[in-house]
Design a protein around this nucleic acid. Structure first.
Length: 936
DNA sequence: AGCGGAGCCTA
DNA sequence: GTAGGCTCCGCTG
């Protein structure tokens, strides 16, 4: 090798990582895989472990085409650890013969492949890997250790990562911390504390991962734990002190030796050429047909699948479905699905789509996260049974050539952006979001089957396609998991064989079309439901897509500071709680807490959970906190740890790399009543009530020169109640702009408006809320902490003063019972299957829902209409300085440039006030600030 | 790894 | 008493 070549070789390290394969760990794992155990050659030589290990190498080659793969196996016989500790691995049974007999063949095959094979006596494979990893790390060579053994986590550095090739789980420094709860440099301490039953390494009795992590979090190292052993309370503390003497030995045993003498260093080891003749002989001998076939196709692994796919590529394949057995109501079995590989067929479809007026389509992507998803293919359907899939970026090895993605999208763009050509889809907001990343603004979004089903009946079914196909078409679709697998090994769509993928994708479009044909006519029979669908939900889809794309800005530093101080306080609280309990326990475990409180400390049980266990719910602890110290500590701990884990720790992790902002998902077809819901993250439950919680809103900030504007509807549900019941007293109170809770108090307690006490107002407020929730005297009594008798009196008084409300509620119950559903002002329906239930509890619950749904649902309708008019106005301004960023049920949040914030806010308030016309005024109130807390 | 329960955050 | 979502634990496969 010339100097130049050596230099180039070094330079190329970046793209050719060192792959250190822990052969022995895979050998044992593969040997125990059930479906491999059956494998053997005709003359009885077992080959399961051989196959398993070689599959793993094959997969590594595929994942790291440029990787420099080194195989390391344990040598026979004892190692230096046995000298240190004779009992080491004494519990291990001898290696079974049918495994032993597979080792030599594996070694032979690996050698014939040209891969360096290291089997070093007197040390374990771990030590050889550790040594090479350390050398590589020092040389700055990126290194991947392929292993199933968690002990290797101690070797992870910024340059050294782990991959478990059997489960496809990778781990870097952060991954180790995440998985184990300690840093890589604490792994040895962690292992030493826990010990290892299998290897016969002693540790601290009863110390598992939880305890080890806790101690190391507190004292950093094993040394630290040993130095502070006196401070550890309880039985486990005794166990620790009993183990003190032998912990250093455990530490030594768990330490991977990183200075094994080797003939070649990590920088020198490299693969040679495969010996094809030798491989052919070995594969033939052990009857490894698949590997033999691969060999015939040259170097490229998995080229075996090419021939079939390529013949399809030459002239577009037509695949017919094979699910005939399950088909009943629709004849999906006779469907003809095209998989389009060439321009001619694509153009044929394009013409058909253009002429169709309405077509169903679906995108296939690499991720369910719309911010990360990349387009893999698109599918279309024009009439039931006729669908096509256009694969674009399937990139598994041996994937056939596909049409150019940019070319296809350029052809489709006018079609997808046409308002005249109507689209049918299932959850089109997702497709719209994905397409927006390819500079396509999806328009003509007229029919979303998910929303059709939701408007038709929000509670009859979940609204995912599989459920809809089953309910409306009596057809079992091919599930994503059927084609992609599940769990850690799940493939992304680009990795799926095109014929399988094509059938799945085309069926999606086909089924979507058929669903539309089944659901839409049913929905359109009721004009009010059709109008909710057409005038509210479908137009809202694009508004939500836009808000999701916009995202919100958060200040991660503010949250990190909060996390830190919360963490400190939580540590203090934990120590305090352990002291009070007299032993260490998990504060977050209701079960453990219940044992401590009610069994060990003998605190009286106040309330039980539905399953009969003593409850440790907040209200219970609050009551106990008056008499005992521990519940108080627990309460503070719960509140703070919720804030830390859900918000201050989590939100910064969810910030998009692309935009630096937080992008939630709004779900339009989840709630029974018509509200939106929000996930990943849920932006609709950001704390506000507690002092600590409010601070989280301070991290929701405006960009430079902008302000956060929050506008919320005041008392919207009570106003709707006034409108619906047309109760004179209630309508008057709102028309005259009174403080509604105060007005209610004045009526119930028969005092003048200005004589209402704070306490009376508080009671009235609870009554008003109770009203919205379908109040019972029982619930009210609990809320106000008064007797049931008195609660009943309040309620009677209320209905006496507001008789229209009573009438309305009675009418609603009756209507629900007769029709089986209730409606919002705009005709959105909620079916109540339990309204005539025999079970009194269920019937009562359904009645409360019946009372609540028209109010909650109408409020949802109103804010949705407001969002539509606000969006329309913002679009018309064509001004990037105004952005709608969030919706929280009765509140809209905006980001507005400071130069125009005043007048824009006024305009938005007006738009919201006039979103609909009720018999009482609709009042929106605004706040302006540098962050959400200030604005609220 | 996936699930239910308990608990707690919001309107 | 209404409507949601998320995190934790602890069990089960």
């Amino acid at each position: 090798m010339t100097t130049l070549e050596t230099t180039l070789d070094t330079l190329s390290n970046v793209s050719s990582p060192l792959i250190l394969v822990d052969g022995s760990s895979y050998l044992f794992r593969a040997y125990h895989v059930p479906y491999l155990q059956a494998l053997s050659t005709a003359d009885g030589q077992p080959t399961g472990a051989i196959t398993g290990v070689l599959n793993m190498f094959r997969s590594l080659k595929k994942d790291y085409p440029n990787g420099n793969i080194i195989a390391i196996f344990d040598a026979k016989g004892k190692t230096f650890r046995n000298d240190m500790y004779p009992e080491y691995k004494a519990n291990r049974p001898p290696m079974p013969d049918d495994l032993r007999s597979q080792i030599a063949p594996i070694h032979d095959i690996i050698t014939a492949m040209g891969l360096p094979l290291l089997v070093i006596p007197d040390v374990e494979a771990d030590d050889v890997i550790g040594t090479l990893a350390k050398q590589a790390d020092e040389l700055g060579i990126e290194t991947v250790i392929s292993t199933g053994d968690k002990d290797m986590a101690q070797l992870v550095t910024p340059h050294v990562t782990l991959i478990n090739t059997m489960t496809d789980v990778a781990m870097d420094v952060a991954g180790v911390s995440e998985k184990f709860g300690v840093r890589p440099d604490q792994i040895i301490d962690y292992l030493a504390l826990m010990g290892d039953k299998v290897d016969n390494i002693p540790g601290v009795v009863k110390c598992g991962p939880k305890t080890a992590v806790k101690w190391l979090a507190e004292y950093e190292t094993l040394e630290g734990v040993i130095a502070n052993a006196d401070k550890v309370k309880g039985k486990i503390g005794e166990n620790l002190r009993d183990a003190l003497e032998q912990l250093p030995l455990s530490y030594q045993l768990a330490t991977i030796k990183c200075d094994v003498e080797l003939e070649q260093t990590a920088g020198e080891l490299a693969a040679g050429e495969p010996d094809v003749a030798a491989l052919t002989e070995l594969y033939t001998k052990y009857e490894l047909k698949r590997l033999l076939a691969d060999l015939g196709n040259g170097d490229k692994a998995s080229a075996a699948t090419d021939s079939k796919a390529k013949s399809g590529a030459a002239k577009s394949a037509t695949v017919s479905t094979e699910s005939a057995a399950e088909v009943t109501a629709v004849e999906v079995a006779q469907s003809q699905y095209d998989i389009i590989f060439d321009k001619a067929l694509f153009n044929e479809w394009l013409v058909k789509l253009q002429g169709s007026g309405t077509f169903a389509f679906d995108t296939e992507t690499t991720s369910v996260d719309y911010m990360k998803a990349e387009l893999v293919g698109v599918s279309f359907a024009i009439e039931a049974g006729k669908a096509a899939y256009v694969p674009l970026t399937h990139d598994y090895e041996g994937a056939p050539e596909q049409l150019d993605k940019d070319w296809v999208l350029a052809q489709l763009k006018p079609l997808l952006e046409s308002k005249i050509i109507k689209k049918i889809g299932q959850n089109l907001k997702y497709d719209a979001n994905v397409l927006s990343h390819y500079d396509i603004e999806l328009q003509g979004i007229d029919f979303d089957t998910m929303i059709e089903s939701y408007c038709y009946n929000s509670v009859a079914t979940r609204h995912n396609m599989d459920a809809l196909a089953l309910k409306y078409l009596d057809y079992k679709t091919v599930h994503f998991e059927d084609v992609a697998g599940k769990g850690a090994k799940q493939l992304t769509f680009n990795q799926i064989d095109i014929e399988k993928a094509g059938h799945y994708a085309a069926e999606d479009a086909d089924i979507t079309l058929r669903l539309h044909q089944a659901i839409f006519p049913a929905l359109a029979q009721t004009p009010s439901i059709l109008s909710v669908f057409t005038d509210i939900e479908m137009p809202l889809l694009a508004v939500l897509a836009k808000m999701e794309q916009t995202g919100v800005l958060i200040d991660s530093d503010v949250l990190a500071d909060q996390s830190f101080s919360l963490g400190q306080r939580l540590d203090e609280l934990e120590i305090e709680a352990h002291n009070l309990a007299g032993k260490s326990f998990n504060l977050g475990s209701p079960k453990q807490l219940q044992e401590i409180l009610f069994e060990e400390l003998k605190i009286p049980v106040i309330k039980k959970t539905p399953k009969g266990a003593p409850s440790t719910a907040e209200e219970v602890l609050q009551e106990l906190a008056l008499d005992y110290p521990l519940p108080k500590v627990i309460l503070e701990n719960r509140g703070l740890s919720k804030l830390k884990s859900t918000y201050t720790d989590k939100l910064p992790l969810m910030v998009s790399e692309k935009t630096g902002r937080l992008h939630t998902s709004y779900h339009q077809a989840v709630t029974a009543t018509g509200r939106l819901s929000s996930t990943d993250p849920n932006l609709q439950n950001i704390p506000i009530r507690s002092e600590q919680g409010r601070k989280i809103r301070q991290a929701f900030i405006a960009p430079k020169d902008h302000k956060i504007v929050a506008i919320d509807y005041s008392q919207i549900e009570l106003r709707i109640m006034a409108h619906l019941s047309n109760d004179k007293g209630l309508v008057n109170a709102f028309s005259e702009g009174k403080d509604i809770h105060k007005a209610t108090a004045a009526e119930i307690f028969a005092v003048d408006l200005d004589e209402v006490t704070t306490d009376q107002r508080r009671s009235a407020k609870a009554i008003n809320f109770g009203l919205i929730y379908g109040m019972s005297a029982f619930g009210l009594a609990k809320q106000l902490n008064i007797g049931r008798q008195q609660a009943q009196e309040y309620q009677d008084k209320y209905f006496q003063r507001y008789p229209g409300v009573l009438t309305y509620m009675e009418d609603t119950r009756q209507q629900a019972s007769e029709q089986g559903y209730v409606e919002t002002i705009f005709g959105r329906r909620l079916y109540l299957p339990d309204i005539n239930a025999k079970n009194g509890m269920r019937k009562k619950a359904a009645e409360r829902a019946a009372i609540n749904a028209p109010m909650q649902g109408t409020a949802a309708d109103i804010i949705k209409k407001a969002m539509l008019s606000v969006h329309e106005w913002i679009e018309a301004q064509n001004d990037v300085r105004i952005k709608m960023t969030m919706q929280v049920h009765d509140e809209l949040i905006f980001e507005i440039h400071q130069d125009i914030v005043e007048e824009t806010t006024q305009k938005l308030v007006t738009l919201m006030n006039n979103a609909v016309e009720l018999s009482v005024p609709l009042i929106a109130e605004f706040g302006i600030g540098d962050n959400w807390d200030e604005a609220h």
